[in-house]
């Protein structure tokens, strides 16, 4: 008789793994990818492919060089690559995309110890890095219908720049300028609902984030159209559903998620209305990432029956 395995309980476990969770996120991003291909054409797919391949290769080579266990099969590098690409404008040079993806993976994630250990969202930090490093190409947003001409994004218009604001319907379906994956609020919403239904993310952060932005921009001058345009444009939906819900860099408690969402909303609105950048989603999430350990500690669950020592 073969030896019996002795191991601590429990002896069964859920079938979910990091890989299956990341696969769910990838599935949830498919509507946004398809929307970007329809809106911006094939070149969007080239940017996405470059970003994903660079991200995965960067992680593979990093692990290889450092003699670490290979982690690419957990698909998290694919997710980072996708999210970064969806935050880039369609005309971004492919080499810049690759540099951004490598930065996201190597500097923001791997150097901090790999998946789960990074304190900042890799895709967001990568985007901010690119915004500083390649500011001219990063801010030249493309209007889908006349793709050679750079135009002001809806947010820039909302912020007071010359230009025409697209209708709310156009903003919702994505018929407007902006980054690849952020323009179609509708496609992102479909993906977000999928993630909620699959239990991958919780409702607290996306809802409080979007609601905070809505309420704050509404009370500025009680213009419902202005507030709606604010929540439908820029990177709010992709940020709220896909970036502010990243496990490693956001609080793991229910109330922590609420605080995180409200904080992101507040910073986003402050930057949009008073800052010199038209968009504040990336910065708000990065700033809140830094506060995450504290928020997590403040909002800890109270043990059932626990008595204070």
């Amino acid at each position: 008789m073969a030896k019996l395995t002795v191991s601590p309980s429990p002896h069964i476990a859920t079938a979910k793994t990091t890989t299956s969770i990341m696969a769910d996120v990838i599935v949830a991003l498919i509507p946004a990818i398809v929307a970007s291909a329809i809106i911006f054409g094939v070149k969007s797919l080239a940017v996405i492919a470059t970003s994903v391949v660079s991200a995965v290769l960067a992680e593979y080579i990093f692990n290889l060089c450092c003699g670490k266990k290979q982690t690419v099969k957990d698909l998290s590098a694919v997710v980072t690559g996708l999210l970064l690409a969806l935050n880039l404008p369609a005309n971004i040079p492919l080499w810049q995309t690759a540099v951004g993806a490598v930065f996201s993976i190597v500097v923001v994630k791997c150097l901090f110890g790999g998946i789960g250990q990074n304190f900042a969202n890799p895709a967001i930090t990568g985007r901010i890095f690119m915004l500083i490093a390649f500011s001219s190409t990063m801010t030249a947003s493309v209007f889908p219908k006349a793709d050679v001409v750079s135009t002001a994004t809806p947010l820039a218009v909302l912020g007071g720049q010359e230009g025409e604001l697209p209708s709310l319907v156009d903003l919702f379906i994505g018929n407007c300028g902006g980054a690849l994956g952020e323009v179609s609020a509708c496609a992102l919403l479909v993906g977000g609902i999928y993630l909620l239904a699959r239990g991958v993310i919780k409702w607290q952060t996306p809802i409080t984030y979007i609601l905070t932005v809505f309420v704050l921009t509404f009370i500025v001058d009680f213009d419902i159209n202005f507030a709606l345009a604010q929540i439908l444009s820029g990177g709010l939906f992709i940020g709220a559903f896909f970036m502010a819900t990243d496990y490693a860099t956001t609080p793991n408690t229910k109330w922590g998620k609420v605080v995180f969402g409200i904080g992101c909303g507040l910073i986003t609105v402050l930057i949009r209305l008073f800052g010199s950048y038209p968009e504040g989603v990336s910065f708000s999430i990065l700033l809140m990432n830094i506060l995450t350990p504290y928020i997590q500690k403040w909002t800890r669950t109270k043990p059932f029956g626990g008595v204070r020592a």
Binding site: I115, A248, P251, N252, P303
Partner: peptide, 25 residues
Amino acid sequence: DAEPKENTACINCGKCVDHCPLRLN
């Protein structure tokens, strides 16, 4: 069935916090 689940890096998903009946962390 005796095969243990592969142990990979913690991703801070917080599911253990959500599901603990005694609200531990």
